[in-house]
């Protein structure tokens, strides 16, 4: 279809402008991270990598590494169960026939909720003495399973992760289910004729064929772990102590509460570096698919 420069301008200019502004803001963040900016009004006082030095080797070292460690916990403890459970459910739903229509939404609905809602809910689920989980345990005579949950600095991050697993399993499940449904039905038939059990089919037929979906799921979930902020804010506010702080939360507190804007920007840059490692390959791969 023939088009002119004016058409290109009309259709593309808004997107280009917005994308440009986004990149401009990223560059701006990088610039701020090199400045000694304290207070909300801009202070352009270049001091090189001083903010990064404070973060990586100076006064804020421990805090940064607590956040980094928690982000790492999120990465491992969140992604593995969410992916595995999602795949398991997808395969199960493929097998249960028409019951799938009823069951599928029951796993997917949490993704429609705000983190603020799920955080509020789970804060109560986890409350040590008033909470639903401990009371449920007591009701079932399992009182010794009761835990301090979010009041325990060693458990708290895992509690937050638990809420996120609940919220995102349906997402993984949906992508996997689509992948399974995309597979040619003959493979399953062949497996059945060979007398394979469900477990064998799962191992030898399903798993080798969902690599593509796994890549998408894992990439998306990694981005979720790098963005996690709302759950921390609502459920623990970074506490007990600073035990549940993650990079975005640290960034927010440093920037907006303490007004160490330069430091906050430096933390943003660290998030940026981590995210780029995932996003750029993913974008490249998506682009190639679109071109194909």
């Amino acid at each position: 279809m023939a088009y002119t420069r004016a058409h290109a301008l009309l259709f593309l200019a808004p997107l280009l402008l917005i994308v440009l502004v986004m990149y401009g803001m990223m560059a701006w963040t990088v610039a701020v991270s090199l400045d000694d900016w304290v207070g909300m009004a801009p202070v352009w006082k270049f001091h090189g990598l001083e903010n990064f030095r404070t973060l990586l080797g100076g006064a804020l070292r421990e805090r940064l590494f607590t956040s980094l460690r928690n982000n790492l916990i999120w990465l491992v403890v969140f992604i593995a169960p969410t992916t595995a459970l999602g795949l398991f459910l997808a395969y199960g739903l493929d097998l249960v026939g028409r019951a799938e229509r009823v069951l599928r939404p029951l796993f997917l609905y949490p993704i429609a909720l705000s983190f603020v809602v799920s955080g509020t809910l789970w804060a109560w689920m986890y409350d040590p003495d008033a909470g639903v989980i401990n009371n449920l345990f007591r009701m079932l005579g399992l009182g010794r399973w009761a835990q301090p949950w979010i009041a325990d600095p060693h458990l708290a991050t895992f509690c937050l992760v638990g809420a996120a697993v609940w919220q995102y399993t349906g997402f993984a499940m949906t992508l996997y289910l689509a992948a399974i449904r995309d597979m040619p039905r003959e493979i399953f038939e062949a497996a059945r004729v060979d007398g394979a059990t469900d477990v064998q089919t799962f191992r030898h037929v399903v798993i080798p064929n969902v690599g593509h979906a796994t890549m998408i799921v894992v990439a998306m979930l990694i981005l979720v772990t790098l963005k996690v902020f709302d759950l921390v804010w609502v459920m623990t506010f970074g506490g007990p102590g600073i035990s549940t702080e993650v990079l975005p939360f640290f960034m927010f507190v440093a920037t907006f509460r303490q007004q160490f804007v330069g430091i906050g920007a430096a933390v943003s840059v660290l998030i940026l570096i981590l995210a780029v490692a995932v996003v750029v390959p993913y974008a490249w791969w998506s682009m190639r698919r679109l071109a194909a």
Partner: peptide, 14 residues
């Protein structure tokens, strides 16, 4: 794509 998927926290200050 990159603008879409990068965590938006990094542009919060600007």
């Amino acid at each position: 794509t990159i603008a879409t998927f990068l965590p938006y926290q990094i542009v919060l200050i600007p």
